[in-house]
Amino acid sequence: MESGLVFFLQLLGSGIAVGCLYALIALGFVLIFKATEIVNFAQGEVIMLSAFICYFLVTTFHIPFFPALVITCIAAALLGVLTERLVLRPMLGEPVFAVVMVTIGLSIFFRSMAGILFGHNNLVFPNPFPSETLKLGGIVLSQTQIWIMVSTFVLITAFFIFFKYSRIGLAMRGTADDQRVALLMGVSVKRVFSLIWALSFATAAVAGIFLANVMVINLGLAFVAISAFPAIVLGGLESIPGAIIGGLAIGIIENLAGGYLDQMIGGGIKDVTPFVVLFLLLMFRPYGLFGKKEIERV
């Protein structure tokens, strides 16, 4: 194959792997937004905290990778329930600004707490997957990347089935659609809210653990979630398929921009591209591809 095409496909392949992670992170945001109309700015800190927790479970307590993943998810879910109960429930009915600021306050609180507890060192996650790479027609992908893609796919399918066929899933969709009617139909909106936060934080934990496998673990991990904002805006804030498509798209754009533009301008383009995309998106299509356009009345 031509080397230019291989380079392109290589960037595309690793872009999809990164995009899957963005999709998972975006999923965490969208779950909360869909049900409660809150964008949780502290999502990135949950990702970072779970990466740290999983790291210490694997290294200090010598727990195998998959049980450690499950324990981390449960811990994150508990944190989600606590956060909803203690911080977000008193804020019900407050203006958007106050709610946004509460989650930002929470995020810097979590981050500095992580700094106090875990310090500022860069930790390297012991890779649980075999290190040999796979070759698909010239493109090289690591086993970790394959695992990321597979588990994203599995998780998303599981969510799809859960929302489509389970009773609680139906209650959640009902709450997202219209809280008052759901309440009248006997759905406990409070319970749905805490469940949603638990689910979202657990999703964030999975994303965090996989991120820890491809990056070093430090406090900066939290910023990855902020780079996932363009993904949720592109997909529309309340659409789960949108989150997935948005995540993949941002992953690919970021990698292509990094691959082609870095040579011209010099480093750092990869980190700033998502924000440029976000800014442009908000200018031209703030409701994303699948979001619903709001009509306001006074």
């Binding site: 509460v102 306050g105 609180f109 106090i116």
Partner: peptide, 24 residues
């Protein structure tokens, strides 16, 4: 020697949350 900037930042975060909940 355990004191560092993180404590201040944690305090900012906590103050934002507490003020918004209890004294908007």
């Amino acid at each position: 020697g355990r004191y560092d900037d993180n404590w201040n930042i944690a305090a900012f975060g906590l103050m934002i949350v507490l003020f918004l909940i209890f004294e908007p």
